[in-house]
Design a protein around this nucleic acid. Sequence first.
DNA 1: TATGAATGAGCGTTCATTCAT
DNA 2: AATGAATGAACGCTCATTCAT
Lengths: 186, 186, 186, 186
Amino acid sequence: MRGAIRVVASRGGHNLKMIDVARATGVGKGTLYEYFPSKNDLIIGCFELLISRYEAYTRQAIKSDLRPDEHLRQFIKASLDFCKAEKELMEVMMDFLTLGIPRKEGEPLLPGVVVGYEQVINELADVMRRGTAEGLFRPVDPQIAAQSLFALLDGLYFQAAMGLINLEEESLPKKLSQIFLAGVLK
Amino acid sequence: MRGAIRVVASRGGHNLKMIDVARATGVGKGTLYEYFPSKNDLIIGCFELLISRYEAYTRQAIKSDLRPDEHLRQFIKASLDFCKAEKELMEVMMDFLTLGIPRKEGEPLLPGVVVGYEQVINELADVMRRGTAEGLFRPVDPQIAAQSLFALLDGLYFQAAMGLINLEEESLPKKLSQIFLAGVLK
Amino acid sequence: MRGAIRVVASRGGHNLKMIDVARATGVGKGTLYEYFPSKNDLIIGCFELLISRYEAYTRQAIKSDLRPDEHLRQFIKASLDFCKAEKELMEVMMDFLTLGIPRKEGEPLLPGVVVGYEQVINELADVMRRGTAEGLFRPVDPQIAAQSLFALLDGLYFQAAMGLINLEEESLPKKLSQIFLAGVLK
Amino acid sequence: MRGAIRVVASRGGHNLKMIDVARATGVGKGTLYEYFPSKNDLIIGCFELLISRYEAYTRQAIKSDLRPDEHLRQFIKASLDFCKAEKELMEVMMDFLTLGIPRKEGEPLLPGVVVGYEQVINELADVMRRGTAEGLFRPVDPQIAAQSLFALLDGLYFQAAMGLINLEEESLPKKLSQIFLAGVLK
DNA sequence: TATGAATGAGCGTTCATTCAT
DNA sequence: AATGAATGAACGCTCATTCAT
């Protein structure tokens, strides 16, 4: 899977050829099929690896029972840290996400994407709800706020993939937390 | 191109087949090649159509010389309105964006994506700078703030593509403006 | 299909490669797929060609309302004549027949084989019944007799495919008719 | 080889895969290659098993120095009995036979088929010759008669493979003997 | 100008065979 | 001796592209 991800990273998710994955992994083409019954399954495997690492990383990084605002700060920081820690994985995130979009015709290649998104967003929405309940947050729509935060990070991953921003910049977590928590207005 | 976009919308960017485009457009396969020398050129054409519409729409929708905060509000509203106006186009946005990611090997299929992003972000950064200069905004990093806003909208487009959010919801522009401008904290 | 049959004749039913068929037919590999959605369909098409020719030939060759014994003689003669007329087709008969055998697992590749056999045998059984009813034949089991006659011819086709007998020998129809009608005993 | 034959019986001669044979036999894939240098050799081995059993069975079942007509009756009976005794083997007979057909290009996979047929037919032809010499048989062509008898049985094996006839039916040997020896005509 | 039949390079996948254990 | 993970040649099939009409 590491080999596959390396290929996706260097050539893009379209253009993923089994022979390239085999070469990148240093095994024969047939050997891939010992571990993944098909190309789709390989892609799904890669994506699941990505997801599970992300979840493990953020779960471990965020202490439980934090004050909601601190939870959001740590979530932002953990997400950005994950990009540093798993740079190679993140480079291909966008490629996989596109494969998860449901289409009018045919099943999405990666149904797990939607499910994964829903989970993360739901957890964030709970934090938002706690924040407003505790009187700590303004009365924002918790669902929209949660989706906005995750969207913001997602959009930045994409900009990073395009080379428009450096997610490893030290000051970034703080700046983003400020913008999202306090807004830009005085 | 409308035909091509219809096909991408219904089957996904990978899976775009010339024969499907031809059928969706109601012309012969050979005829496509009269207008686009190759499949890549067709894709590029589609993307440029998307970009030019978006730019035309937002430019026309945002009055000039607005107060910075109002500019941001109108930008958010215009972007979301564009999704309503050109629903079909937006459904395929993510498919095209992924093709614009630069890779370690080979040119990106759609070099225009990066350029387009830079333009929009630069314009937003100018607005941010004006906002802070006028003492209207808190002293946020204007570049990061601009990128964040665009990232937020981008991420929401993606969530919309996955069916996780309805961009046509009436109250959405106002809620997003509030979150981005005033933050979630009290 | 003529090309496919030529290839089967020269290399055997196993060993049928699409590329060989394409070359034998003088067209490109892709062109075959314009006319047959898959290799299986090509094989089915060949077999149906074979069957329809055989049926057309024997039907046309056998006058209706013949005396049962004369009917059998003409059936034997027509079957053997068909081998002369469609030598190329007959060379591959056995290859196709094997594909029609039902297996414990999976559908037979050529379900039509069984159906075709049943039809021919049923018609012959009717002739046998008429023969015994008219007191012309000994009281043989009409079903078994019909199956025997067709089996005899089938077995000879196979021996011909192996080069053990020449089905074009002038005297063969008469000799076979004698053996089947009068037996070998005095 | 029993394992291989079981696989051929259940899936057909095409579709014979070494892995399936290994699993059916309960040994490893590599172990097969300890006993058969290649798949072809395995197939040849199976066929030779089939042939030797058949020869042993018929030879043992037919008493020597029988009257020619009685010899034929016993040959027919022995052949049909063999089908009962070695049902599994007979189910795959047709699959192997097809592999013995000589082709315009390349050697037949099972050259032994032709040789085996010639042997059996020659023995039967001798019987026929004796029958006519002794004035017991009508003056039939002994070669053709021998080939016809074996063809008849062969054709019936095939019909049995297709499920069109039950070779185990008690009365079958007698009915076939009658038809072949006395013909269908009164 | 418009077409779609024809093409063949290229890909995903299979499976006979090998060989280190 | 027995194994099965690894291999890659080879095949079925796809689809971007061409070109005669």
